[in-house]
């Protein structure tokens, strides 16, 4: 007859902690991966790889701190190092040159509450996000899709908070302009812009 061990083997503790603190963020990792890679198969692989890296590096994680941020940082590095080159090309556009117009100016008279947005479906919004330049897309995904604070976004992207503010500002305006143009194109609203 064997006696049960005094304490569970360390691997079980590690597994329990990992499931409790890391695996619960699977949906968030998947949503971000999907927007970064642009397709479901690569998103699956990227998340799987992120979880594997995170499990191996679990001793570096401090329990009770921001696990989601830690995992997203790993995911982003994996994306930059291994996926970006083959899934999307790094941008060559000059982000500072992008000056989207303010959509409200167009809608002021008929629809100051922006009700036309409600007619635009999920897939169209996600497509518009996917079309953003990568630096803008990252900011929007972390902030608007995942609800992270500017400070958390800055840490994950490894940029100053001021950069997050400015990217988010221009990214949202650009997104607004794209969705406005889409709504005009679909005939949901009449465009005033020439």
């Amino acid at each position: 007859m064997t006696t049960p061990p005094q304490s569970p083997p360390p691997v079980d503790e590690k597994r329990a902690a990992f499931e409790r603190e890391a695996l619960v963020h699977l949906d968030a990792l998947y949503r971000v991966a999907l927007r970064l890679t642009g397709n479901a198969a690569d998103a699956d692989d990227l998340v799987q790889e992120t979880m594997l890296k995170a499990y191996r590096a679990w001793h570096q994680y401090q329990p009770g701190t921001n696990a989601k941020g830690w995992l997203l940082t790993i995911l982003r590095h994996a994306f930059i190092n291994e996926y970006r080159r083959r899934t999307r090309h790094p941008e060559t556009v000059d982000l500072d040159a992008i000056e989207p117009f303010a959509v409200l100016d167009e809608r002021q008279d008929d629809d100051p509450q922006g009700q036309f947005f409600d007619r635009i479906v999920d897939d169209e919004v996600l497509r518009a996000i996917d079309e953003l330049p990568e630096q803008f897309r990252e900011a929007v995904v972390l902030s608007d899709v995942e609800g992270m604070s500017y400070e958390e976004v800055a840490r994950i992207l490894d940029v100053p908070i001021g950069t997050v503010k400015s990217r988010l500002f221009r990214a949202r305006r650009l997104l607004q302009a794209k969705l406005y143009e889409y709504a005009v194109g679909m005939g949901y609203i009449k465009g005033n812009r020439t």
Binding site: R31, L104, G114, F117, V125, I129, D144, R172, L175
Partner: peptide
């Protein structure tokens, strides 16, 4: 207007979950 836009944006893109198989 911007508040309505952000609410719309966030409601539209926080819905996806990871596939069960993953």
């Amino acid at each position: 207007f911007e508040e309505a836009f952000l609410k719309f944006l966030q409601a539209r893109c926080r819905t996806r979950s990871a596939p069960p198989d993953l």
